[in-house]
Amino acid sequence: MHATENTGARYAMAIDLDKCTGCGACMVACAVENNVAVPPPAAAANRGLTWMAVHRTDNGQEWPAHRPVFIPIPCQQCEHAPCIHVCPVTAVQLDESTGIVGQVPARCMGCRYCMAACPYHARYFNYFDPTWPEGLEETLNPDVAPRMRGVAEKCNFCHGRLDRARERAAAEGRPADEVVAYVPACVEACPHGAITFGDSRDPASPMAQLARDPRAFRLLEALGTGPKVTYLSADPAVRRVGLSRLDMVRGATAVTADGAEGA
């Protein structure tokens, strides 16, 4: 293999599900940071643009055995992203220097093949002309370009913030290929410190340790997509959330004592 393959950063995220209370701060901060438009009130819920989407699930039991589980799902920034090779117009690319899967809205022609390809439902389509209630354009973030209708979009680990961090580094005279430290909006916003972010190739980064944490799991790892978002939970039942439903069922037959979901 090429010597260049392991140069550059691999920004990665770890989300501690034991700390997440489903407050939604990450979703709001993400929408504010990334100029995500508010769809018209009549719009179907499933047409929203939620780059960070906190899903609510449970252990499959009824009260009083019921336990809620909140799973924040940003784009998983897969190393072998299913969405990259399907895009006919080269609007999705893996940045070798950061490991971030970039989406170029200005290139996208809106065929939505990438959305069909993504198993995490982390891609969104602008069904509407993005509009803001009157005056609200004043609150748009100048570091992030607003998108137009008819294009796909998704989380990019706050590319605007990465650019700002790089500008700062350049202004301080640091070398251009140096890996800069920054945090995406959701990481900054989480009031419970549930989200960790950093370069997983940097052995000193907490990400490097978290990836080896026994509580760690990834979503649908068997698909081989190589997601860069790691989830953490001490609860084996919560860790099963990362598997396909089949594995949940199998797991339940193996551990019938805790009575997880039956077939």
């Binding site: 117009v89 996208c108 022609m109």
Partner: peptide, 21 residues
């Protein structure tokens, strides 16, 4: 069907040779 019909020709202009589409 495409969201930006005005860019439909990007499939030729910015073609991704790895894409089945």
């Amino acid at each position: 069907d495409v969201g930006q019909p005005i860019r439909a020709w990007f499939a030729f202009w910015h073609a991704n040779v790895h894409s089945m589409l």
